[in-house]
Design a protein around this nucleic acid. Sequence first.
DNA 1: ATGAAAGCGCTAACAA
DNA 2: TTGTTAGCGCTTTCAT
Lengths: 347, 347
Amino acid sequence: MSKKKRSGQITIRDVAREAGVSISTVSNALNKSRYVKKETLQKIRNAAEMLGYRPNVIARGLRIKSTRSVGVIVPDIANPFFAEMVKGMEEVARNLGFTLILCCTYYDTDEETRQLDLLMNKWVDGFIFASGFNTDDHIAELVDQKIPVVAVDREITQFEVPSVLIDNVEATKKSVNYLCELGHRRIGYITFSMEKIKTVENRFLGYRDGLKENGIDFDDDLLIVDEGLRMNEIKGCYSAVEKMLGVKNPPTAIITMADVMAIGAIKALKDLGVRVPQDVSVIGFDNIAYSAFTDPPLTTVKQPKKSMGRIAMTLLIDLINKKKVEKKNIIVPTELIIRESTARCPQ
Amino acid sequence: MSKKKRSGQITIRDVAREAGVSISTVSNALNKSRYVKKETLQKIRNAAEMLGYRPNVIARGLRIKSTRSVGVIVPDIANPFFAEMVKGMEEVARNLGFTLILCCTYYDTDEETRQLDLLMNKWVDGFIFASGFNTDDHIAELVDQKIPVVAVDREITQFEVPSVLIDNVEATKKSVNYLCELGHRRIGYITFSMEKIKTVENRFLGYRDGLKENGIDFDDDLLIVDEGLRMNEIKGCYSAVEKMLGVKNPPTAIITMADVMAIGAIKALKDLGVRVPQDVSVIGFDNIAYSAFTDPPLTTVKQPKKSMGRIAMTLLIDLINKKKVEKKNIIVPTELIIRESTARCPQ
DNA sequence: ATGAAAGCGCTAACAA
DNA sequence: TTGTTAGCGCTTTCAT
């Protein structure tokens, strides 16, 4: 029963000897890469089984230049939005016999580049980027080397890289429209810096254009752009909320660009003695599982996270397997989920 | 600027030619594995830089039998408890130049075994199991082949495998004691099946013994063991709570073995018109980030998730690097976090 | 201080 | 239907 120690691994050669055939027959038999007589096949299978043979995927990878592993690069796995997405990815990778290598960047471009470098050396067969900068320089090399890449929750404009994402402009407009229906005219927006991330920018654009379409002038006072939010989305919202309430004509509603931030905003408001939603309404973005259980439950825009992850991974593996796929963006639907953090505008 | 296509990779041979030295000198220079004259080194570095040389880690791995990658096996990455732990692991893996391969098992032993097999073929250098069955058979082979393994949030009894975990018995007793201090005598417990998972079993033991130490008889009516909770911890709690409230002498307090379940329990209670904590108190376990923002905020037992992940990964990599480490369990501290889901026993 | 060459375990072209 | 063999890109022993 006890197999050999790893450094004395059972190789294809051992199996060949045991089965009384050549190593190429073993290889071909086990990989079904050419026809092998039934009985020979059986002999080989028996020998392999008996010896506890494990094909050395590294050696195989060296030969065929494929490791059947993919790199997944996300900003932060502890953010339920990304965790859900990765869950979807993992599910399909596993089912298709691929291995998922996880890297977190914490929104740091240098880190993203470093990770990429490391993984390219490891010869992963493809990449999914859920991380998000618009400086796509480091993707250039991947494209250049024809390594499959798909993006998710971000757009890559410079290259022919397919993305799986939502229409962020429209999605945010839904929030704005809903608040306007409730009579709000002073609507604040909390985001982190958008210059490098199209997704973040588009959400802001949805906010700005949504206001315009409802005949409301954009007011700089009601826009908080805060880098601190990146590292601690929940707590980082305290200062943002404080700042926003301090303006001469404070908002009656606040939109945040992520649920994790909305959760922090609600807490901050409550701590400041502001009632949600009676005094101020709050809308988040993503519909993470926990937003249904906050106090009050959060109104938010739902993204199909897990399914985005699944689609992205399927796409990537198709690309790796050289299936013909249309290299264009896949837009998945969103939905405004109305819960109790929003109410009619006071007075 | 444009590097070659991958299949025409720049190899050590190209660098050697460019630098006018032998390939072994290049290898030794780049790996500092033996002394190389300063100027030769410089020449080699220049050549490598110029050509955009990337060492092929797969080829290297084949030679030295190490891939500098580790397998991390968790039940469910979308559970914030595991996501936080993985975050800690990823952090140290990355800093030490290791690659983290993520696998989810969804509490399925067969899946765990399959994953393991896949990763062994991929020659990962070591494993972290946060997944959790006490049938450690599939770990036997790892131990047998001297592949480093560390466990986290679980105990492995049959083998000399170090674990990073809390004292689950004591931790749960803290909850029981606190509820007793508040005057509760009818304390329910919701868990999923514990037979195969020591951690789950120990929490129950803490509950049972905690009751005894407070002079309370264990009542079978107040224990709900529900397999459905595994797959959907939040929603699965509905039926558990319903069942528990239906008994002749229902509880005034409920302990769940995880925050995700407590969140579901609170929701279920509210939907049934039971006030938390006025009518029934609820205590969770883990202190995931979102338990601070539920309604009411959850009283829970804090586990240092990220730090557990960090410790586990550090330990594993030490093991891989053949550092001498004590192969014994590392117990990390817990803390009862008192929020507002618990109150004095009514009347 | 450096080079030549063997070989890690596998696949695939070519032979038979 | 199967076997022989070159070679993937690298590390490392043995020479020099």
